[in-house]
Amino acid sequence: MNKFKSVLLLTCLFILSACGGGSGGNDGDGGGDPSTPATNTPPTINVGVDQTVDEGSTVQLSGSGNDIEGSVSYLWQQISGTTVQLSATEISSPTFIALQVENTEALEFSLTVTDNDGASVTDTVKITINNSGSTAGGTETLLFYTHGLSSVDPSSPNSPTLIEATENLVTDLLFGITLPTQRESLVRSGVYNGTTKIISNVNNYAVVYPKTDGKLYKTSALKSGSHTPVQISNESLAHQVCDLVDGGVISDFANVENSQYVYRLSGIDEVCDTTDDIWKMVTVGMDATQSPIIAKAPVINITDENTGAISGPVSG
């Protein structure tokens, strides 16, 4: 009898062991191992549509990205075509200036969107630049004149467009009459040949000017560009700008966005041509978040108006 009970007891223990014994041996099965990380979902990406633009125009790349688990970062790269300078590479929608081209040219850019866990996706977009057929002295740019700041298409001289009203511009008071001060400056664009030192296809690119709100602005001088004024620095003393030297602009024909607008502030006494005058400059490619650069009296490149040949720098 005792032997039978022993066999029965062993049999029951075997069965309980095979069934898990009700001791919680399945704890790791039901809800999964809490130490196992959740699967990361890659971000989504949108690089916008392919564009066709005119040479000299401002082009905006329109990218976006999204991640359901967190934030994303951006990285733009140019992967083909003549190199252009993006306004930034780590934002969603940078801009660049379409360079002058001899023939229609396609540029290709890639955008990589990366999430917080390092997962990334990449897509590309194509920008085709058209040759506008412009020549030196051509009419692919607008003309500007004062009494306010107005532009006019040379082919439609009777239809000017007001860019800024007179009361918005920095002016001088003469015998109780407010007059424009001609502080507007034209930025030139063109094609520079480093071997011959000749600039061809010279056109107006932008107009830079100070406003009574204390800010510096630019507006496109290109027919194909946007003529809505854009603030180009966080300067708040532009209403103190004195007369400019030689138009106030040094154009960089290799990259027009590097062109410098050089100006002089009247200082604490707000009187020009005194010892506390301050020289400053901005580049045309700056935006409203950037500070102007402390400068000195500029050195201006002198060019031959007929040939575009650079004849050398002189002190301003």
Rank of each mutant, 00 (worst) to 15 (best):
G138F: 03
G118N: 01
T124C: 03
G138R: 03
E55V: 03
I97K: 10
D123L: 03
D50A: 12
F96V: 07
I129A: 06
P94Q: 11
F96D: 04
E164W: 14
T95V: 13
V113L: 12
S110F: 04
T135I: 02
E184M: 10
G190V: 03
S156N: 15
G137H: 13
V121T: 13
N116K: 11
S189T: 00
S71R: 07
L186C: 01
T141H: 14
Q77C: 14
E108N: 13
P180M: 07
R183Y: 10
V53F: 02
Q77R: 15
E167F: 15
I91F: 08
V72Q: 04
E90F: 07
S155A: 15
Y74S: 04
D172N: 14
F175P: 00
G137R: 11
S87A: 05
G118A: 01
R188K: 00
S87T: 13
I127Y: 02
D153W: 13
I177D: 00
D50I: 00
G81M: 05
E164N: 15
L99D: 13
Y74M: 04
V125F: 08
L86D: 12
H147E: 14
D117V: 03
L107E: 04
E102C: 10
T89G: 08
T112S: 02
I127N: 03
I163M: 14
V125Y: 12
G63V: 05
E105Q: 15
S155G: 15
I68P: 00
W76H: 12
F144R: 09
E108Y: 02
G133W: 09
L169N: 06
S110K: 11
E140K: 09
N66W: 09
A88W: 04
I163Q: 15
N103L: 02
S73Q: 04
S92G: 11
P180E: 08
A106N: 09
Q78H: 14
A98L: 02
T122E: 11
G118K: 00
N66H: 12
L173F: 01
S87E: 07
L143C: 08
T58A: 12
G70W: 13
N131H: 09
P94T: 10
T58G: 10
V101W: 09
T128W: 06
F175D: 10
N158P: 01
N131G: 10
S151Q: 13
D153R: 14
I79Y: 12
I68D: 00
T104C: 02
S92Q: 11
D115G: 01
Q182V: 05
T161A: 12
L174G: 00
L111A: 07
I68R: 01
S62F: 05
T82W: 13
